[in-house]
Structures are given as structure tokens and as C-alpha cells.
Design a protein around this nucleic acid. Structure first.
Length: 439
RNA sequence: GGCGCGUUCGUCUAGGGGUUAGGACACAGCCCUCUCAAGGCUGGUGCACGGGUUCAAAUCCCGUACGCGCUGCCA
């Protein structure tokens, strides 16, 4: 039987990193073993059920590179894929349970009568666990329908997993204790329970369940914050799973190759934003330049940098790619390439341009560069160093003023590469302008 | 309270009877260097505790503590 996994979020208007990681593991498992991933929206609580809330889920998953085979937006053979549209199906199963004597009424609500036996859970991550359900005081009969006719999570979740032919339920460990109840429901409905895999939870720095208030708990934070999706997906996979060979930076293809449920550990993990940040820099450093351009463009566009064509932008980005850790840092690294009206960092200007003798050194460098016919970074370096020697100063005494003169900043790409790309004319003009203001 | 799961550097993890307990992030120092990164080198901190089993336990068993989860007419 072909594998079917699912991600079943509630449309809260917020895609939690824990949920995203659950989705990722379901996706990896389905893709690795040629199965299908189903997206089901658990929107029985109508109050927070909005189109925007659905969009947040679709966008967050897509951004991470997760695609699904069936879902509200895709259709499929087992729809509808929103619980709010599945009332008839729930009613059908409810009537069956009722007819078979599994239900009883309690204050207008309906409860499921537990068989009161020991339930064995065979979890692919946690192993075999026996739950003694015999004591009603500790395991009360669960409610499955409220007096107003609305449904309770446990019931609709199980009905949907049966109807949608799920073979594997991969979900957060917070559901492990609910699993025996779910198995009782499967059995009462005459269905074979799926395989379960409960994955450890993601905690905040205080060791508590990651909540909305915690920085970085929403995928939106990463989308808006200049992260690259492959790095975030990589990091999320490293929480509770590892390739076991000391590698940290992994492509999705590599993870797909190594991933299996049996490799997931049972220990809750604290989310470490620092490490995610580091991994982001590693992915940027090593990614294909074309991919970098693709990811960088929206940030450049948003900053309204008038770069003209992609062909003009690409070489500039190539200088920034090995140095930055966040895509949102990009505008400051590229904007001065495309305008003469770039901002000048007052602190850098004060420290470098106003330094004793800066004017003379800039003018000397300018003269030397003016005489240079072969404008490439190697020749630029040779010329600058020769000029420094002639002046009897360290190369840095020319490098720093030149950097501030052409970019307005004290940090940036390698100077010689930057000068080469800027071109002789612009470099000389900017040096002249800086010399006029220097001490 | 009851039930379930867990506990290896601050954090993420590898190791699952014999290891100088490995890697990564972060931190500190050094090297490289035009800035910032990257890279290289070095350093410190860790098997929760107590009992067993065993020639030998981080590793297996029991207990304790602590953490997390569930215990809803939330999902």
C-alpha cells in the first residue's frame, strides 16, 4: 500500500515553526518513499477561519519547499479538505458509532464509551507503550460532539484519517497521550489504525513550549527576516534528527537521502536562533550564484535600488554573497553601485576621511589610479600597494579612505574587486569628491 | 495528583557495555587579512543523582529528582 501522510494545521493566521517541522517530516517521509502528502485544514473552530489564515499556511509551506498532493487548493479523491466542509461525513460515522452502542448522551453532548482495556501503542519513534485505560477517573470518556452539534478534535481527526486513507500519522509528541483514545475510536469504527510517529517538541530558550510571543516562532519571521528557505528547512530538520556523520549543512536532497523516522530522537529541543542564523550564512556562502540572485532580488527591489538589468546586478551580488548572512543586509551592500547619491556613514567619514593627511593620500592614490591603463583588481592592488610604499605608509592608510570614498561605508566587499566593478571613471570621481572633503 | 515521554558541554547532537566521551552553534585567544565575513589553530565547560547487574556502565535494570506533555463540551 502506498504511503499517505498528512499535515493538519488549524488556520490560526500563524505557521508555527513546530508545525512547519512536523510538515517537513511528513513531507520528507512521503517523498522519500514515493507516497503522498495531504494537507488538511482543521477549521472546526470557525471563529479564526479566514482566507488570510489559509494563505499563511500555503505560503509558509511553499516557501520551505514543501508541496502537497491533495488539499483544499488542490483537490483530490478524498476531499473536501477542510473540516468545516465535512459535516456529512462526520455525521455518518457518528450515527454508526451511535447505532453500535459506543455513544451515550451527557448533558446534550455525546461521549464515546471507552472499552476500558489496555491499549498498545506501537510508535515508530517512541517504541511500544501500553496505556491502561481501565480507570474512568483518570481516563474519562471523551466527548465527541457538543450540544450545539459541533465536533471535537479527536473524533474528526480520526474520521478524517480513516476517510483519507492515511497510513502514517507523524505529529507532535503532545499527541502521544491522546493516541490510545484515538486507537479506541479506530477500533470502534472498524478501521485499522495507521502507524504513529510522535516527534519531540520544539521549546523556547526557557525550555517551555514555543509560543507566539517567542522571537522566531513564526515562519513569517524567517520569510521577512532575510533567511533563505533551504537554511531554515535544514535547521528545522536538525531539531530531533541528525545525519549522524557530524554534518550540519545539508541540502534537502541530502536530507531526503538519509531521512527516516527511526532516526528521530525523543528529546524535546530548544530552538537556537543563533545556530539557525549561522546556517543561513553557510547556505548563502555556498549556494549557486543564480539562486542567490533569485533570492536577493526581492530585497533589492523592496529597497528601490535602481540597478537596471539583472545582468548589471549579478556581478555586484557576487561580491556580497560570500560576506553576508542575511538577505536583508543586501541593499546597503549594493546600492552605492547604482547611484552617486549614496549615504555616507558619518562615523566612517570622521574616522577615516578626517584623519590627518587623508586628503594627500587620496590624491596620491587618485593620481596613480588615473595613470593605470589596465583596470582590473590585480593591477589595482599592485598600484595601491606601490603608492603606499612610495608614500611610506601602510596599505591600510590608502585602503580605508578609498573604501569610504567609493562606498560611504567602512565595511563591504573586497576593495579591489569593488573598484574594478565600479570602473575607473566613477572611482576617480568619487575619490576626488572625498578628497575635497578630507583633512 | 494520575498517566505518558524524556535527561550527554549554555544550546543542537554523535556515541547505546571497554572511547583521551566526537562534531556543530555560541564564547575566549591566536593566525590569515584592506573592512566585514570566510577559513585555520587553540581553549574551557558535559554523560542529573542514588542503587544494582558486570572483570568493566555515559551505554543495561530499578528508584529518585527535574523537565515537558496529556489529563477539556481546545486543536
Amino acid at each position: 500500500m502506498s504511503i499517505r501522510t498528512r499535515f493538519a494545521p488549524s488556520p490560526t493566521g500563524f505557521l508555527h515553526v513546530g508545525g512547519a517541522r512536523t510538515a517537513l517530516f511528513n513531507w520528507l517521509y512521503a517523498r522519500k518513499f514515493g507516497g503522498k502528502l495531504i494537507l488538511r485544514i482543521e477549521d472546526t473552530d470557525e471563529k479564526r477561519n479566514t482566507e488570510e489564515a489559509h494563505a499563511v499556511i500555503y505560503q509558509g509551506l511553499s516557501w520551505l519547499g514543501i508541496d502537497w498532493d491533495e488539499g483544499p487548493d488542490k483537490g483530490g479523491d478524498y476531499g473536501p479538505y477542510r473540516q468545516s466542509e465535512r459535516n456529512e461525513i462526520y455525521t455518518k460515522h457518528f450515527e454508526k458509532l451511535k447505532a453500535d452502542g459506543h455513544l451515550y448522551e451527557d448533558g446534550g453532548a455525546f461521549r464515546f464509551r471507552s472499552p476500558r482495556k489496555t491499549v498498545q501503542v506501537e510508535d515508530l519513534v517512541c517504541g511500544k507503550i501500553a496505556f491502561d485505560m481501565s480507570n474512568p477517573a483518570t481516563h474519562p470518556d471523551m466527548t465527541i460532539r457538543r450540544p450545539d452539534g459541533s465536533w471535537i478534535f479527536h473524533f474528526v481527526n480520526v474520521v478524517d484519517d480513516i476517510e483519507m486513507k492515511m497510513t502514517h500519522v507523524i505529529r507532535g509528541e503532545d499527541h502521544l497521550s491522546n493516541t490510545p483514545k484515538h486507537i479506541e475510536l479506530y477500533q470502534a469504527l472498524g478501521a485499522e489504525p495507521p502507524k504513529f510517529a510522535h516527534i519531540p517538541l520544539i521549546l523556547n530558550k526557557e525550555g517551555k513550549k514555543l509560543s507566539k510571543r517567542d522571537g522566531g516562532s513564526s515562519i513569517t519571521h524567517f520569510i521577512d527576516g532575510g533567511y533563505v528557505p533551504e537554511a531554515v528547512a535544514n535547521y528545522l530538520c536538525l531539531l530531533g534528527w541528525s545525519p549522524k556523520d557530524n554534518r550540519e549543512e545539508l541540502s534537502v536532497a541530502e536530507i531526503l537521502e538519509l531521512f527516516d523516522l527511526s532516526g528521530i530522537n525523543r528529546r524535546n529541543a530548544i530552538f537556537d536562533l543563533d545556530k539557525c542564523f549561522w546556517l543561513n550564512g553557510q547556505h548563502i556562502l555556498h549556494m549557486d550564484p543564480a539562486r542567490f540572485v533569485e533570492l536577493a532580488k526581492p530585497y533589492i527591489d523592496q529597497a528601490e535600488v535602481l540597478y537596471g538589468t539583472t545582468e548589471a546586478l549579478a556581478p555586484v551580488l557576487a561580491l556580497a554573497q560570500p560576506k553576508i548572512k542575511h538577505l536583508s543586509d543586501l541593499p546597503a551592500w549594493v546600492s552605492f553601485f547604482f547611484t552617486e547619491d549614496f549615504p555616507v556613514d558619518p562615523e566612517a567619514s570622521e574616522k577615516v576621511l578626517q584623519k590627518e593627511g587623508a586628503k594627500g593620500r587620496i590624491e596620491a592614490l587618485s593620481a596613480a589610479l588615473n595613470a593605470l591603463s589596465d583596470w582590473n583588481h590585480a593591477a589595482l592592488e599592485t598600484t595601491l600597494k606601490a603608492t603606499a610604499t612610495a608614500l611610506g605608509v601602510k596599505a591600510g592608510e590608502l585602503v580605508h579612505p578609498a573604501r569610504v570614498a567609493v562606498s560611504g561605508r567602512s565595511v563591504g566587499p573586497g576593495l579591489y574587486e569593488m573598484l574594478e566593478l565600479l570602473g575607473k571613471e566613477r572611482v576617480l570621481a568619487r575619490l576626488a569628491r572625498a578628497a575635497a572633503q578630507a583633512a
